[in-house]
Amino acid sequence: MKPFAYAHPGDVAEAVRDVAAEPNAVFLAGGTNLVDHLRLGVARPDLVVDVRTLTSREITDLDDGGLRLGAASTNSEVAADRRVRERYPVLAQALLAGATGQLRNMATTGGNPLQRTRCPYFQDVTTPCNKRQPGTGCSAVGGYTRYHAILGTPGALPDPTAPETCIATHPSDMAVALTALDAQVHTLGPAGVRTVPFVDLHRLPGDDPSKDTVLEHGELITAIDLPPLPAGARSAYRKVRDRASYAFALVSVAAVVHDGDVRIALGGVAHKPWRATRAEEILRGGPLTDHAVRAAMDAELAVAQPQPGVEGGNGFKIPLAARTVAATVRTLTEEQS
């Protein structure tokens, strides 16, 4: 815990200027993740810029039949919105599968996808962590890896001392649904406005695990657009976790099914929400039988790397992911027929 200055500027432009001008500044929205990190010393900003009331809180219809979620709309509001529930059940379900009612009342559309990993070593400032403190190493490798990645890692048991090693997962449920929905992210940064496809918002650790996303310092999410789904498309979110509520995903699946086509995004398996493009390609046009889906997922997961560790590591996620995708797609196709 370290003192910081708090600013509540008049508009988004000023907020972006404030943060851009101070290398050690952050935006604050609902605060459900950031405030924890301030307490724990995981985040040690000099300046906190409150944007909660600056971006739109509206959920508006777009001309193309899609929806725009203002960055300040809360997770509760989005989940309860009739249009979201009818047209994008996968998103409403993902939101309702996350956190608790109280947290969802505070958490925002802008903040949720930018919440940081729950890796316990990241959250404990006494243990080395490349994401929190670049170059210190990764404590998770060979440790408690139940909630860690199986995809997009440099391999099983990567070098824990290497500065690029990170096997963390992204914890957001909402982000998995947005990945399957091909959402678009609108931002305002020091360099102006831009639109980032949601699938490209989060990154793999690459050579810098401290960066979760492609956003620049001072770049503010102003809204997220949901493109329209084709008529007759069905979608669902299935979250598998260690208790019935109030737990992060071991594996989660967002699926959209339309006319034999399927979109699959996975949570709990990688540093970013994982779009299963390989499986999608294999399944395109074909029948979505249990067998076919499992086989396609086996192909998708062929590159998966189980992480060993205390309590048996996380290898179980490989069969679990394939099974959960098959079960989710099954409910969607059964619904259809």
């Binding site: 316990p120 070593y121 404990d124 404590s139 440790g143 205390v310």
Partner: peptide, 13 residues
């Protein structure tokens, strides 16, 4: 969940 390498409970919240 005990992490014997460092001697602490990993999931301590």
């Amino acid at each position: 969940v005990w992490d014997p390498r460092i001697g602490q409970v990993a999931n301590h919240d």
